[in-house]
Protein backbone atom coordinates (compact mmCIF):
# COMPACT_ATOMS: atom_id res chain seq x y z
CA UNK A 1 0.00 0.00 0.00
CA UNK A 2 1.55 3.36 -1.01
CA UNK A 3 2.32 5.65 1.90
CA UNK A 4 3.99 8.90 2.81
CA UNK A 5 4.83 9.93 6.33
CA UNK A 6 6.26 13.02 7.97
CA UNK A 7 7.71 12.27 11.40
CA UNK A 8 8.40 15.28 13.62
CA UNK A 9 9.35 17.11 10.46
CA UNK A 10 10.80 20.55 11.14
CA UNK A 11 12.46 23.13 8.98
CA UNK A 12 13.99 26.36 10.18
CA UNK A 13 15.47 29.21 8.19
CA UNK A 14 17.37 31.16 10.80
CA UNK A 15 14.80 32.30 13.33
CA UNK A 16 11.87 31.54 11.01
CA UNK A 17 10.20 28.19 11.51
CA UNK A 18 8.71 26.97 8.25
CA UNK A 19 7.73 23.55 9.60
CA UNK A 20 7.19 22.77 13.24
CA UNK A 21 7.26 19.07 14.16
CA UNK A 22 4.84 18.03 11.46
CA UNK A 23 3.44 14.54 11.91
CA UNK A 24 1.31 13.24 9.09
CA UNK A 25 0.81 9.74 7.77
CA UNK A 26 -1.13 9.08 4.58
CA UNK A 27 -1.68 5.54 3.41
CA UNK A 28 -3.50 3.93 0.54
CA UNK A 29 -4.86 4.92 -2.82
CA UNK A 30 -6.58 8.23 -2.36
CA UNK A 31 -6.28 11.90 -3.14
CA UNK A 32 -5.36 14.16 -0.24
CA UNK A 33 -5.56 17.92 -0.53
CA UNK A 34 -2.90 19.88 1.33
CA UNK A 35 -4.26 23.28 2.27
CA UNK A 36 -2.86 26.28 4.03
CA UNK A 37 -2.19 29.97 3.54
CA UNK A 38 0.94 31.35 1.88
CA UNK A 39 4.00 30.53 3.96
CA UNK A 40 2.17 27.82 5.91
CA UNK A 41 4.77 25.20 5.00
CA UNK A 42 3.06 23.30 2.17
CA UNK A 43 5.78 23.65 -0.44
CA UNK A 44 8.47 23.19 2.21
CA UNK A 45 6.90 19.84 3.14
CA UNK A 46 6.74 18.71 -0.48
CA UNK A 47 10.31 19.85 -1.12
CA UNK A 48 11.54 17.82 1.82
CA UNK A 49 9.69 14.79 0.45
CA UNK A 50 11.53 15.22 -2.85
CA UNK A 51 14.95 15.97 -1.35
CA UNK A 52 15.03 19.51 -2.65
CA UNK A 53 15.60 20.76 0.86
CA UNK A 54 16.74 19.03 4.03
CA UNK A 55 14.73 18.95 7.23
CA UNK A 56 16.20 20.63 10.31
CA UNK A 57 14.78 17.75 12.34
CA UNK A 58 12.63 14.69 11.83
CA UNK A 59 12.32 12.78 8.61
CA UNK A 60 10.16 12.28 5.56
CA UNK A 61 9.36 8.75 4.47
CA UNK A 62 7.95 7.40 1.23
CA UNK A 63 6.75 3.81 1.36
CA UNK A 64 8.58 3.51 4.68
CA UNK A 65 11.91 4.63 3.21
CA UNK A 66 13.57 7.78 4.54
CA UNK A 67 14.03 10.15 1.62
CA UNK A 68 17.28 11.73 2.82
CA UNK A 69 18.99 8.46 3.55
CA UNK A 70 17.87 6.48 0.49
CA UNK A 71 16.68 9.04 -2.00
CA UNK A 72 16.83 6.83 -5.09
CA UNK A 73 14.88 4.04 -3.49
CA UNK A 74 12.36 6.34 -1.83
CA UNK A 75 11.59 8.32 -4.98
CA UNK A 76 11.64 5.34 -7.35
CA UNK A 77 7.87 4.96 -7.04
CA UNK A 78 7.06 8.62 -6.58
CA UNK A 79 6.41 11.25 -9.25
CA UNK A 80 6.53 14.87 -8.22
CA UNK A 81 5.76 18.29 -9.54
CA UNK A 82 7.14 21.02 -7.30
CA UNK A 83 6.46 24.65 -8.24
CA UNK A 84 6.85 25.25 -11.98
CA UNK A 85 10.08 23.63 -13.13
CA UNK A 86 11.81 24.87 -16.24
CA UNK A 87 12.85 22.38 -18.88
CA UNK A 88 16.05 22.78 -20.90
CA UNK A 89 14.80 25.21 -23.55
CA UNK A 90 16.42 23.49 -26.51
CA UNK A 91 14.75 20.15 -25.78
CA UNK A 92 11.36 19.17 -27.15
CA UNK A 93 8.69 17.71 -24.83
CA UNK A 94 9.38 14.26 -26.32
CA UNK A 95 13.09 14.59 -25.55
CA UNK A 96 12.54 16.00 -22.06
CA UNK A 97 10.17 13.15 -21.23
CA UNK A 98 12.55 10.67 -22.80
CA UNK A 99 15.26 11.89 -20.42
CA UNK A 100 12.96 11.38 -17.43
CA UNK A 101 11.91 7.96 -18.76
CA UNK A 102 15.55 6.90 -19.07
CA UNK A 103 16.47 8.25 -15.64
CA UNK A 104 13.54 6.39 -14.10
CA UNK A 105 14.30 3.18 -15.96
CA UNK A 106 11.13 2.95 -18.03
CA UNK A 107 11.78 -0.10 -20.24
CA UNK A 108 13.02 0.80 -23.70
CA UNK A 109 10.25 -1.23 -25.33
CA UNK A 110 7.64 0.72 -23.42
CA UNK A 111 9.19 4.16 -23.58
CA UNK A 112 7.68 5.54 -26.79
CA UNK A 113 4.20 4.37 -25.85
CA UNK A 114 4.36 5.89 -22.37
CA UNK A 115 5.76 9.17 -23.65
CA UNK A 116 3.03 9.37 -26.28
CA UNK A 117 0.37 8.56 -23.71
CA UNK A 118 1.70 11.12 -21.25
CA UNK A 119 1.81 13.81 -23.93
CA UNK A 120 -1.69 12.84 -25.03
CA UNK A 121 -2.94 12.95 -21.45
CA UNK A 122 -1.83 16.56 -21.07
CA UNK A 123 -3.11 17.45 -24.56
CA UNK A 124 0.28 18.46 -25.97
CA UNK A 125 0.43 16.16 -29.02
CA UNK A 126 0.65 19.12 -31.39
CA UNK A 127 3.71 20.47 -29.56
CA UNK A 128 5.52 17.20 -28.89
CA UNK A 129 8.42 18.00 -31.22
CA UNK A 130 8.68 21.75 -30.76
CA UNK A 131 11.36 23.28 -28.55
CA UNK A 132 10.19 23.95 -24.99
CA UNK A 133 11.96 27.34 -24.92
CA UNK A 134 9.08 28.99 -26.77
CA UNK A 135 6.31 27.49 -24.61
CA UNK A 136 4.07 29.47 -22.28
CA UNK A 137 4.12 28.78 -18.54
CA UNK A 138 0.94 26.75 -18.83
CA UNK A 139 2.31 24.59 -21.63
CA UNK A 140 5.47 23.92 -19.64
CA UNK A 141 3.35 22.99 -16.64
CA UNK A 142 1.51 20.43 -18.75
CA UNK A 143 4.84 18.85 -19.71
CA UNK A 144 5.87 18.87 -16.06
CA UNK A 145 2.67 17.05 -15.16
CA UNK A 146 3.37 14.54 -17.91
CA UNK A 147 6.88 14.05 -16.50
CA UNK A 148 5.46 13.35 -13.04
CA UNK A 149 3.09 10.71 -14.42
CA UNK A 150 5.45 9.16 -16.96
CA UNK A 151 6.80 6.32 -14.86
CA UNK A 152 3.31 5.44 -13.61
CA UNK A 153 4.32 5.95 -9.97
CA UNK A 154 2.30 4.73 -6.97
CA UNK A 155 2.63 8.10 -5.29
CA UNK A 156 2.24 11.49 -6.91
CA UNK A 157 3.17 14.72 -5.14
CA UNK A 158 1.73 17.82 -6.74
CA UNK A 159 2.49 21.34 -5.60
CA UNK A 160 -0.27 23.60 -6.87
CA UNK A 161 -0.40 21.76 -10.19
CA UNK A 162 -2.87 24.11 -11.85
CA UNK A 163 -0.64 27.15 -11.38
CA UNK A 164 -0.27 28.98 -14.67
CA UNK A 165 -2.97 27.01 -16.42
CA UNK A 166 -6.01 28.53 -18.08
CA UNK A 167 -9.48 27.40 -16.94
CA UNK A 168 -9.55 24.61 -19.50
CA UNK A 169 -6.11 23.46 -18.40
CA UNK A 170 -7.18 23.52 -14.75
CA UNK A 171 -10.21 21.45 -15.56
CA UNK A 172 -8.08 18.99 -17.52
CA UNK A 173 -5.63 18.63 -14.63
CA UNK A 174 -8.52 17.91 -12.28
CA UNK A 175 -9.69 15.27 -14.75
CA UNK A 176 -6.19 13.76 -14.80
CA UNK A 177 -6.15 13.62 -11.00
CA UNK A 178 -9.56 11.94 -11.00
CA UNK A 179 -8.36 9.36 -13.51
CA UNK A 180 -5.29 8.70 -11.38
CA UNK A 181 -7.55 7.96 -8.43
CA UNK A 182 -9.15 5.22 -10.54
CA UNK A 183 -5.68 3.73 -11.03
CA UNK A 184 -5.13 3.28 -7.28
CA UNK A 185 -2.56 6.01 -6.79
CA UNK A 186 -1.85 8.02 -3.67
CA UNK A 187 -2.03 11.67 -4.68
CA UNK A 188 -0.89 14.36 -2.27
CA UNK A 189 -1.74 17.73 -3.73
CA UNK A 190 -1.19 21.19 -2.31
CA UNK A 191 -3.54 23.87 -3.52
CA UNK A 192 -4.94 27.28 -2.77
CA UNK A 193 -8.12 26.47 -4.65
CA UNK A 194 -10.66 25.10 -2.22
CA UNK A 195 -13.13 24.14 -4.92
CA UNK A 196 -10.38 22.21 -6.67
CA UNK A 197 -9.66 20.27 -3.47
CA UNK A 198 -13.31 19.60 -2.70
CA UNK A 199 -13.77 18.57 -6.31
CA UNK A 200 -11.07 15.91 -6.54
CA UNK A 201 -9.82 15.07 -3.05
CA UNK A 202 -11.10 12.42 -0.65
CA UNK A 203 -9.23 13.74 2.35
CA UNK A 204 -7.77 17.04 3.38
CA UNK A 205 -4.81 18.09 5.53
CA UNK A 206 -4.63 21.69 6.69
CA UNK A 207 -1.44 23.33 7.81
CA UNK A 208 -0.62 26.75 9.17
CA UNK A 209 2.58 28.20 10.64
CA UNK A 210 4.21 24.85 9.94
CA UNK A 211 1.80 22.94 12.16
CA UNK A 212 -0.80 20.43 11.09
CA UNK A 213 -4.25 21.68 12.07
CA UNK A 214 -6.35 18.79 10.85
CA UNK A 215 -6.18 15.69 8.69
CA UNK A 216 -9.37 13.79 7.98
CA UNK A 217 -11.85 12.97 5.27
CA UNK A 218 -13.34 15.94 3.50
CA UNK A 219 -16.77 15.17 4.92
CA UNK A 220 -15.50 14.85 8.50
CA UNK A 221 -13.42 17.98 8.30
CA UNK A 222 -16.24 20.10 6.92
CA UNK A 223 -18.81 18.70 9.32
CA UNK A 224 -16.53 19.19 12.32
CA UNK A 225 -15.14 22.60 11.59
CA UNK A 226 -17.59 24.52 9.45
CA UNK A 227 -20.43 26.62 10.83
CA UNK A 228 -21.43 25.71 14.36
CA UNK A 229 -19.37 22.58 14.35
CA UNK A 230 -22.17 20.19 13.45
CA UNK A 231 -23.52 21.54 10.16
CA UNK A 232 -22.46 20.56 6.69
CA UNK A 233 -23.65 21.16 3.19
CA UNK A 234 -23.61 19.24 -0.03
CA UNK A 235 -24.13 20.34 -3.57
CA UNK A 236 -26.24 18.09 -5.74
CA UNK A 237 -26.47 18.00 -9.49
CA UNK A 238 -29.26 16.41 -11.47
CA UNK A 239 -29.81 15.29 -15.00
CA UNK A 240 -33.24 16.88 -15.21
CA UNK A 241 -34.41 20.34 -14.06
CA UNK A 242 -35.27 20.42 -10.38
CA UNK A 243 -38.85 20.95 -9.25
CA UNK A 244 -38.08 23.17 -6.30
CA UNK A 245 -41.45 23.03 -4.57
CA UNK A 246 -41.73 19.23 -4.56
CA UNK A 247 -38.11 18.74 -3.63
CA UNK A 248 -38.17 21.31 -0.87
CA UNK A 249 -40.91 19.45 0.94
CA UNK A 250 -39.48 16.01 0.24
CA UNK A 251 -35.89 16.87 1.12
CA UNK A 252 -36.93 18.84 4.18
CA UNK A 253 -38.54 15.71 5.56
CA UNK A 254 -35.21 13.82 5.56
CA UNK A 255 -33.91 13.70 9.15
CA UNK A 256 -30.99 16.12 9.66
CA UNK A 257 -31.74 18.43 6.74
CA UNK A 258 -31.68 22.10 7.75
CA UNK A 259 -32.37 23.78 4.43
CA UNK A 260 -32.67 23.21 0.71
CA UNK A 261 -31.62 25.91 -1.70
CA UNK A 262 -31.67 25.78 -5.49
CA UNK A 263 -28.44 27.11 -7.09
CA UNK A 264 -29.67 26.87 -10.66
CA UNK A 265 -31.98 24.73 -12.77
CA UNK A 266 -30.09 21.49 -12.19
CA UNK A 267 -28.06 22.18 -9.05
CA UNK A 268 -28.99 22.71 -5.42
CA UNK A 269 -27.37 22.96 -2.00
CA UNK A 270 -28.59 20.98 1.00
CA UNK A 271 -27.47 22.06 4.47
CA UNK A 272 -27.67 19.47 7.19
CA UNK A 273 -26.57 18.60 10.69
CA UNK A 274 -25.49 15.28 12.07
CA UNK A 275 -22.23 14.66 10.24
CA UNK A 276 -21.48 11.88 7.76
CA UNK A 277 -24.39 9.72 8.96
CA UNK A 278 -26.86 12.42 7.93
CA UNK A 279 -24.97 12.90 4.70
CA UNK A 280 -25.36 9.21 3.89
CA UNK A 281 -29.06 9.31 4.77
CA UNK A 282 -29.60 12.30 2.47
CA UNK A 283 -27.77 10.60 -0.39
CA UNK A 284 -29.84 7.44 -0.04
CA UNK A 285 -33.06 9.46 0.12
CA UNK A 286 -32.19 11.54 -2.94
CA UNK A 287 -31.36 8.42 -4.95
CA UNK A 288 -34.66 6.88 -3.88
CA UNK A 289 -36.49 9.99 -5.09
CA UNK A 290 -35.27 9.25 -8.62
CA UNK A 291 -34.63 12.90 -9.45
CA UNK A 292 -31.79 11.98 -11.83
CA UNK A 293 -29.03 12.56 -9.28
CA UNK A 294 -25.67 12.69 -11.05
CA UNK A 295 -23.46 14.41 -8.50
CA UNK A 296 -23.34 14.70 -4.73
CA UNK A 297 -20.42 16.42 -3.07
CA UNK A 298 -19.61 18.47 0.00
CA UNK A 299 -19.94 22.05 -1.14
CA UNK A 300 -16.85 24.17 -1.44
CA UNK A 301 -18.41 26.73 0.80
CA UNK A 302 -18.34 24.19 3.63
CA UNK A 303 -14.65 23.65 3.03
CA UNK A 304 -14.17 27.37 2.77
CA UNK A 305 -15.94 27.84 6.11
CA UNK A 306 -13.73 25.16 7.60
CA UNK A 307 -10.60 26.71 6.15
CA UNK A 308 -11.45 30.17 7.38
CA UNK A 309 -12.41 28.91 10.82
CA UNK A 310 -9.24 26.91 11.26
CA UNK A 311 -6.85 29.43 9.80
CA UNK A 312 -8.47 32.29 11.71
CA UNK A 313 -8.01 30.36 14.93
CA UNK A 314 -4.28 30.21 14.49
CA UNK A 315 -3.74 33.88 13.70
Amino acid sequence: MPSIEAVNLSKKYGSFTALDSLNLKIEGAKCVGFLGPNGAGKTTTLKIFTDMIRPSAGHAMINGITVHEHKRKALAHCGALIETPEIYPSLTPSEALSMIAELRGVPHSDRSRRISEAIEEVKMEEWADKKVGKFSKGMKQRINIAAALLSEPDIILLDEPTTGLDPRGMSEVREIVRSLKQKSRLIFMSSHLLNEVSDVCDEVAMIDHGKLLVYDTLANVTSKFSGDGSDGSVEIGTLRPLDEEILKSNVASIPGVLSFERIDVKNARVRFSGGPESQERILVALVTMKIGLISFRPSSSALEDTYLNLIKDTL
Binding site: C78, A80, T84, E86
Partner: peptide, 14 residues
Protein backbone atom coordinates in the same frame (compact mmCIF):
# COMPACT_ATOMS: atom_id res chain seq x y z
CA UNK B 1 18.30 30.37 -11.06
CA UNK B 2 16.49 29.00 -14.13
CA UNK B 3 14.67 26.35 -12.07
CA UNK B 4 15.76 23.56 -14.42
CA UNK B 5 16.96 21.76 -11.30
CA UNK B 6 13.34 21.34 -10.23
CA UNK B 7 12.79 19.16 -13.29
CA UNK B 8 15.58 16.74 -12.39
CA UNK B 9 16.22 16.79 -8.65
CA UNK B 10 12.78 15.47 -7.66
CA UNK B 11 13.53 12.23 -9.49
CA UNK B 12 15.26 9.15 -8.07
CA UNK B 13 18.71 10.39 -8.98
CA UNK B 14 21.61 11.43 -6.79
Amino acid sequence: QNKTGYFLVGNPIR
